[in-house]
Every structure is written in C-alpha cells, then in structure tokens.
Design a protein around this nucleic acid. Structure first.
Lengths: 157, 157
DNA sequence: CATATTTGGCTATAACTCATAACTATTATA
DNA sequence: TATAATAGTTATGAGTTATAGCCAAATATG
C-alpha cells in the first residue's frame, strides 16, 4: 500500500501517471503521440534514403509539377530558407530537377524525375502501411475523425 | 490568367492544397497541428521564464515530491541525460531543489520550492487559457475525444 | 566476502528542426 | 528611373533528441 506520509513516488511502483497534471493539455498529449509517429515514419523513410522533410517536399513536387520553392515552403508551412537544403538534397539524389522558368529568372520550377516519382510512390505505400499498423487500434472512422480534428486546429474555419 | 499548358501552380492562386497527397497521413496532419500548439505554448511559457521542457518537468516535480531524475525521465519519455540540464535550469532559477536521499546516495529527491509551485500554477493557468482560445472551434466533447484518441496512440491498450 | 552487474546522475557530442537576418539577382511598381 | 517587392541563398543561433561513455553507489551473484 502507499505510504501515508508522502505523495512521493514509490520506487517499487511503475513510473506512470506522474504526468497527470499535464494530461489535460492537448498539446502535451499531442507531443507524445507525434513523437511516436515521427520516430516510426523516420525509420520507414530511412530505408528509402529519405527523411520526413525530404519526403514531404518530394510528395508536393510530384503532385505539383513546376512548383516553386516559395510555393513549396508555403504549402509545407516552412521558411523559404529551409527549403534550400532540402531541395539541394533531392536534386543531388536525382529525385527532382531545378528548371529555370523563362518568364521569371528568379525562380525555379521544380519537377520530380522518374526516379523521384517511383521513390515517392514506394515510400508513400510503405508509410501508409506502417501507419495502418501503428494505428491498428483505431477504427477507420476514429482515424478519419482524428485527421478531421487535427485539420481544424491547423486551419480554423 | 492561368497558363493552359501546364498543371503548374498559378502564382495568382493561393498556395493551398499542394499537400493533398500528404493529408491522408495522420502523422503529417499531427505534425502541422503540434507545430501550432507548441509555438503558442512556447510563447506563453516564455513570459514565465519557462520552456516547454522545463514547464513539463516542473509540473511533474510539483505533483510528485521527491521524484528522482530517472523517474522524471521515464514519465516524460525523455533520456536521463537530457533531464540534467533541465533540472539544472530549474534549480538555478530556485524553482526546485535537489535533495540527497539518505537511503540511496546516488539519486536526488527533487522537490519544488514555493516559488516553483507558484510559477507552475500561474504558467499552467495561462497555458490552459491559451489552449482554450486556440481550440475555441472545438467543442469540449471534441477536445476530450481528441485527447482520448491521442492517448490511445501513446499507449496502445 | 569478493567480484560483477546494474543503476543514477553526469558530460560531451552529433543530428535534426526551426527561426531570423542579411545578401544577390530579378521583377514589379510609383 | 528610382524604389519596392520577390525568389533564392547563406549563415547562424536556439532548441530538441539520441547516443556513447564516464563515475560513484548500490545490488546481485559466485
């Protein structure tokens, strides 16, 4: 039984529940959940020579031929400056190409190579499969609702 | 006017929807949402001289007097090594104290000071208030369900 | 009891994310 | 034409997280 003179943790008891005071915060729970998902995603993507950021950028570029780096940054909620190294990495891996646009010599039109499209497709399939496994104890409806709730935080209607 | 020969993004059109291919992933949506919540939380906590990690640790220590650093690390899902600098920071700010435990001279019993307890309380109130504002377009039920879903990812039953 | 292993805390380090400021070249605007 | 704004870039700093290894103390095992 618990000692009566103190609320201190019993070394013999499991160290869970010490964060009760934080569990009411959505942010805390989400930080923990996202940590799990990101670690898993990073591990999966590593097999394809991709990281989360490069995969995200590659996906957008595949789906949006001739997108510019600024548009990419806006779409992924990142700073323009941070896209540069990501694009560099993808370009050096021959997964995308920087193409000058004749009408505006400042910007690049980003286009995925055939290898890039294939790599993205394979990584995407693996990623969805892994997420399915990781979220196996959520019904499809619950999962859809989770996404819906997250999107309402992202872009409040 | 949009160019007709390409699916490229029209510079005049809003740069939204370029990430359709990622929106099916729970992880992607959660990364975006957590980014918003964390940025807001960090801004709020900064007014109290705290960061997210130090606030989390302080909260656990307040609620669990004489907790050890290892227990804290386990509770917050972090490495023991990373707790050290956090504890150092809290101790130097006189928000907590390291107390030697006579029965085990290896470990410290962490206890919040009165200032620490007050600081935590004030920061916690501000944090909950801000989260309420940020999640105003979610009903209390939706918010509770969101937390429930996140917890099921965290610790799959 | 003596040795070996484990545990708690610590240091250093490295990879990665994210934000900011400043710069160049180009385009648009007053 | 002079000025603003835009696209991309570079450099940098703060913060988070993981790993490896260290020391001292405690515990387990022979």
């Amino acid at each position: 039984m618990a000692r009566s003179t103190s609320t201190s943790a019993d070394p013999a008891s499991p160290v869970v529940g010490l964060d009760r005071g934080l569990r009411g915060l959505v942010g805390y729970n989400m930080k923990r959940a996202v940590h799990i998902l990101q670690a898993d995603a990073a591990r999966v993507l590593d097999e394809f020579g991709l990281r989360i950021t490069t995969f995200s950028a590659l996906s957008v570029i595949c789906d949006t031929p001739d997108v510019t780096q600024s548009q990419l940054a806006a779409a992924l909620n990142m700073e323009r400056s941070n896209t540069v190294v990501i694009i560099d990495t993808l370009e050096q891996a021959d997964l995308i190409g920087r193409h000058r646009v004749p009408t505006d010599r400042r910007s690049y039109a980003l286009r995925a190579t055939l290898a890039g499209i294939k790599r993205r497709e394979a990584a995407s399939v693996a990623l969805y499969a892994h997420e399915d496994r990781l979220l196996a104890n959520l019904t499809p409806q619950e999962r859809a609702q989770l996404i819906a709730l997250l999107r309402r935080i992202d872009s409040p209607d």
